[in-house]
Amino acid sequence: MDGGGALIQLAGVCKDYKSGPEIVHALIDVDLTVGAGEFVAIVGASGSGKSTLMNILGCLDRPTAGVFTLGGVGVGDRSGDARAMVRNRLIGFVFQGFNLLARTTALENVELPLLYRGVSRKERRRRAIEALCEVGLQDRLGHTPTQLSGGQQQRVAIARALVTRPPLLLADEPTGNLDTRTSYEVLALLQTLVRDQGITVMLVTHEPDVAACAHRVITVRDGRITDDSHNSQPVQARAQLAAALTV
């Protein structure tokens, strides 16, 4: 990863689905470059193709055509296990539904990506605790998801995404299940990560308030990127949070 250079490069990426006899063009000729340390929001109506875009960016899916380079390496056409490795090493996921393992403690949830990387037990524990401290959950290590609030669960999920120190964090509607205050908590955390650690965050949302926190907003419609605008004055989530608390 050459510092400041392009982390993500999509060139002519298409994705077609077969839906019965019809072929659905979910993405059409998408070009996109995202540099390291950017905070990008992807907005669009449902069915616009933004989820498909996220799946491809997350190496969960392969483009039908086009080139996808992540950190200078072509990953679009890799096999299943190779993509699993890319996901493990380069990408952290945060989902709308948190997607933590039930009946599993916060600590164990956060350790999981390291397990698949073959990190020793002791080291796993150390790094998982470190990641949980970063998201402010140092006193919730032994709690299972049902014992945590939504915001706390999402923070565990962020810790899980961070624990492998990936250059890219993909967040799919991370505040969709959270109230305004907790949403700003999570967004403030993401902004901190971008600012302090230089992580690239790509966040899918359909809420303008959330998108306003990003440096760059990409609009997807009918499988194409129709707008790509920089936001020189992103909303500071921490300030919003403070304002909300004083009301």
């Binding site: 969960l60 296990d81 999981l112």
Partner: peptide, 9 residues
């Protein structure tokens, strides 16, 4: 979930 965070087949 396990696959998303990097479990191989």
């Amino acid at each position: 979930i396990r696959m998303a965070i990097g479990a191989r087949k």
